[in-house]
C-alpha cells in the first residue's frame, strides 16, 4: 500500500500547523512589544538569556547532535567578543563586525577541530579545555586587547531607530537570536544535520554510508564556534565592558549545564535551558533576598555554616539540579515538556 501522505514538505516547513503558527506569532508579538511595557532591567535579563540561547544552540549542535564534548566554549565566546570590540573600535559598522566575529570564531573552531578529530571522551575534554584556557591567558597578555584590565565596548549607532539605546539593542539581540534558532532548525533537518547525528550515533556506520568524518566534524566545530562568536559579539555589546576573567572555565561549564538541563540535541532544549538557567543563576545570586526562604537560609547558615558564604548555596543547588536532571529526566526540560504535552493531549482521560 502506498502511504497516504504525499506532500512531504509538511515535514520541512517551520510551523507544523496553524496552531503552532498562531502561538509563535503571539510569542513574537509579545517579545516585540515588551520594551514598551517593562523596565530596562528586565530587558537586560532577556538579553542575557538570548545570548545564552545562541551559545547553547551552537554548543548543542556540537555536543548534543554531533556527540563531541567541549569544555572550552567560553574561549570561542571570548574570541567573538574581542573581535567585535576591535572592529568596532576600528570604525567597522556593527553588522560587519558581527559577521566577522562569527566567521573568525568559526575559523578558530575549525582550527581546534583539527587536532581533536581522533579524540574522544576525556581526551577531547582536555583538548577543548586547554583551548579555552589558552584563549584567556593569551588575551590577558595582549596589551592591544586591554590585557587583564579589559576594554570598554564602543556603543553602536542605533539612533536611526528612534528608540532608546537599550531598547534598540534589545531588538538587535532578539532578532539575531530568532534567526539563529531558525538557522539551527533548518540545519538540523537537512542532510548536514543528519550527518552530524549519524556521527554521534555511530561514526563507523556514518563513514560506511559515505559521510566524510573529518569534513563533518570540522563543520560541526566550525558552526558551533560561529554561533559562540556571534553570541560573544552580542554579549560584548550588552555588557559594555569585557575582560578575560569573564570567559573562564566556569563559563564553559555553565554553557554545558544549560544544554544538559535543557535537553541534549534539542533546539527547544537549548532555548529552555538557557532561559531557565539564566533566571536561576540570577535568583540564586542573591538567594537571601528571596522572601521567607532567604531568612530561613540565613539563620541556618549562621547556626551551622557561615553567613558570609551563603551565596555559595547557588553552586550547591546548581550542581544538585544538574544531577537530578541527568538521573530523572535525561532529556532535560525538553523531555519534561514532551511529557506534559502528551499528558495534556490525553487529558481528561
Amino acid at each position: 500500500m502506498r502511504n497516504l501522505k504525499t506532500d512531504y514538505f509538511e515535514d520541512l516547513q517551520l510551523f507544523k500547523d496553524g496552531l503552532q503558527l498562531f502561538w509563535s506569532a503571539v510569542l513574537l508579538l509579545l517579545l516585540f512589544a515588551l520594551p514598551f511595557f517593562v523596565k530596562t532591567y528586565y530587558l537586560t535579563i532577556i538579553n542575557l538569556m538570548a545570548v545564552n540561547v545562541v551559545v547553547a544552540l551552537g554548543l548543542n549542535l556540537l555536543v548534543g547532535n554531533t556527540g563531541q564534548i567541549s569544555l572550552g566554549h567560553a574561549g570561542f565566546v571570548a574570541i567573538g567578543a574581542y573581535t567585535t570590540v576591535l572592529l568596532l573600535k576600528a570604525g567597522v559598522p556593527f553588522i560587519f563586525a558581527l559577521t566577522a566575529s562569527g566567521l573568525v570564531t568559526g575559523l578558530f573552531g575549525v582550527l581546534l577541530g583539527i587536532p581533536s578529530l581522533k579524540l574522544e571522551g576525556p581526551y577531547l575534554a582536555i583538548a577543548t579545555l586547554a583551548f579555552g584556557l589558552a584563549v584567556t591567558t593569551v588575551i590577558g597578555r595582549m596589551d592591544f586587547l586591554g590585557g587583564r584590565m579589559g576594554m570598554n565596548v564602543p556603543k553602536i549607532s542605533l539612533g536611526w531607530t528612534g528608540l532608546k539605546y537599550d531598547q534598540s539593542l534589545y531588538y538587535v539581540i532578539i532578532i539575531i537570536t530568532i534567526l539563529a534558532v531558525i538557522a539551527t532548525r533548518n540545519l538540523l533537518k537537512s542532510r548536514i544535520g543528519r550527518a552530524f547525528q549519524a556521527i554521534r550515533d555511530s561514526d563507523i556506520a556514518a563513514s560506511a554510508i559515505g559521510i566524510n568524518l573529518t569534513k563533518y566534524k570540522l563543520y560541526s566545530f566550525g558552526i558551533s564556534a560561529f554561533f559562540a562568536g556571534i553570541a560573544g559579539s552580542l554579549w560584548a555589546l550588552y555588557l559594555g565592558f569585557i575582560n578575560p576573567t569573564l570567559f573562564s572555565f566556569i563559563l564553559s561549564i555553565n554553557f554545558l549545564v544549560i544544554i544538559v538541563l535543557g535537553g541534549l540535541g534539542s533546539i527547544t532544549g537549548s532555548v529552555m535551558g538557557a532561559i531557565v538557567l539564566t533566571y536561576l543563576n540570577l535568583q540564586l545570586e542573591d538567594v537571601v533576598e528571596i522572601p521567607i526562604l532567604g531568612d530561613a537560609l540565613l539563620r541556618f547558615s549562621e547556626l551551622f555554616m557561615t553567613a558570609t558564604g551563603v551565596s555559595n548555596v547557588s553552586w550547591f543547588l546548581t550542581g544538585f539540579i544538574l544531577i537530578l536532571v541527568v538521573l530523572f529526566e535525561p532529556l532535560g526540560l525538553y523531555g519534561l515538556w514532551l511529557r506534559t504535552k502528551i499528558y495534556w493531549k490525553r487529558w481528561p482521560f
Binding site: L12, Q13, L14, I182, A183, R185, N186, L187, K189, S190, R191, I192, G193, Y219, I223
Partner: peptide, 8 residues
C-alpha cells in the same frame, strides 16, 4: 551549508 538554511 548556505543552501540548507533555506530548507523551510
Amino acid at each position: 551549508i548556505a543552501a540548507v538554511l533555506g530548507l523551510s
